[in-house]
Design a binder for these strands. Structure first.
Lengths: 127, 127
DNA sequence: TGATAATAGCGAATCGTTTCGCTGCGTCAA
DNA sequence: TTGACGCAGCGAAACGATTCGCTATTATCA
């Protein structure tokens, strides 16, 4: 019985994506500097991971540039949304609201954030 | 460079937890029935997974009962919250609000849900 | 020009997860 | 008793994710 692919970015992949979201398009050297600072892994590892991610379509690269420049295939919001949808599906069986309430019930928020949320609610209701 | 443990329930583990959340405390046979229906895996696999999860503290079991009865160590809300916190940390770098807004901006909600959320916002502001 | 360093890629080792075969034990009916 | 059956456990295979050593290619410059 083969295992079905997770389709979700793995741990290290997320770490790399985060670096790219923060730095913007970067050469391996830069990415490695950050990744190594975080986990102490080898340069080869970074290169390999990027090639795997390229394969999977998680990052793109400009091969004309020298050295090659990597950039995320999707931005943070889009990726986060996808992972979230997946989490909701797996744990809450599709009920996004249960989860939002869950988060709200245990999180602090600033005045601005609260207001922004009210605005959003009004908008959702007003249609 | 050793890998650091994820501390998150894995895919199959979540599947089993969901079954337990729905069914309540159950013997292996019942759990297996569901898991097998979902993925076609062997009885041995279910037993093994449960023993791994017992090891990790994800489930508990009553060994006096015959056959043994398994139950989740944490309920759905608690587990979901933990996984969510982890997701927020990994993707949104700890900003729970970014994520809530993200969800709200792309989800439909019923009148009741909207009201419940307003109530919650008021409560958060109230102190 | 030859040594040195940066860049890129590949195959294999390692690790945690998932899967299963095989074994042992207890129960129950013929 | 014996043999069929359900329950439980263990070790190892299979698999994807991660890590790295080794090699090749290209740029740098003394």
């Amino acid at each position: 019985m083969p295992r079905s692919p997770s389709s979700q970015p793995t741990e290290v992949e997320i770490q790399i994506l985060r670096i790219l979201w923060e730095l913007g398009p970067s050469p391996v050297r830069e990415i490695h500097k950050r990744l190594n600072a975080a986990k102490g892994t080898n340069y080869s590892t970074t290169v390999k991971m990027l090639s795997v991610m390229l394969q999977k379509g998680l990052v793109k690269r400009d091969e004309d540039a020298q050295p090659h420049v990597y950039r995320p295939a999707a931005n943070r919001a889009k990726t986060g949304k996808k992972m979230l949808d997946d989490l909701i599906e797996r744990v809450y069986e599709g009920s996004a609201m249960s989860l939002v309430l869950q988060v709200l019930s245990s999180t602090r928020a600033s005045k601005e954030e609260l207001n922004e949320m009210r605005r959003m609610l009004d908008q959702m209701e007003g249609k």
